[in-house]
Amino acid sequence: MNLAEINNVSKTFPPVKAVRGVSFSLGEGEVMGLLGANGAGKTTLIRMICSLIPPDSGTVWTAGRPGYMCQSFSLVEELSVHENIRYYGTLMGLSRNELARREEEITERLNLVQYRGTPVRALSSGYRQGLSFSVAVIADPKVLILDEPTSGLDAVARRKMWKMIHERASMGTGIIVSTHYLDEAYYCSSLSLLREGQLIARGTPKEVAPDEQSLLRYFR
């Protein structure tokens, strides 16, 4: 079953045709890498899938509201771990009981139980990373969109992020990830490459490019 259907969407910010007739679908448990040079239309496409902006033409359908996380970790720095979970959970429409259950689950899994009252800005970057990912999926979205989630992270933290992504995918969530790291293209189960707003390649990483060097040509 497909969790997202993007059908021939276009978006123009005159005079720039940011996205031109892009179609694809996202399956259960699929991790789709979204790659392309700066200005290829990745951000515009992501914003349309999150229904932050409407497409000029074409249709976007997702199974329920997508979860979203961008590179700047959308946690509220001044609030504590507990308050962040409550805040985002409430925004996502979780009930009181559900919230309490999710908070228990998240803090236990991330070893954050003793830091519940700690403001997020005092946490180490590893904890913040885990927490912001958990908050993005707090309402168990069927579709998850990650906009350069590993930008600015060190080698180990990047792998931790991918571990969380794969765990989530194994639960059936369909995930769209944008990245500038070429090696990360091979952590995805499928790739979509954009150039000048058009989808120029779609397939498994090996089909699209057997190695990182040949992947580079899609950026020129």
């Binding site: 392309g36 040079a37 600015g152 500038h180 070429l182 580079l216």
Partner: peptide, 9 residues
């Protein structure tokens, strides 16, 4: 090179 695509990098 932060936020810059691989070729521009």
């Amino acid at each position: 090179t932060v936020g810059v695509d691989p070729v521009s990098r």
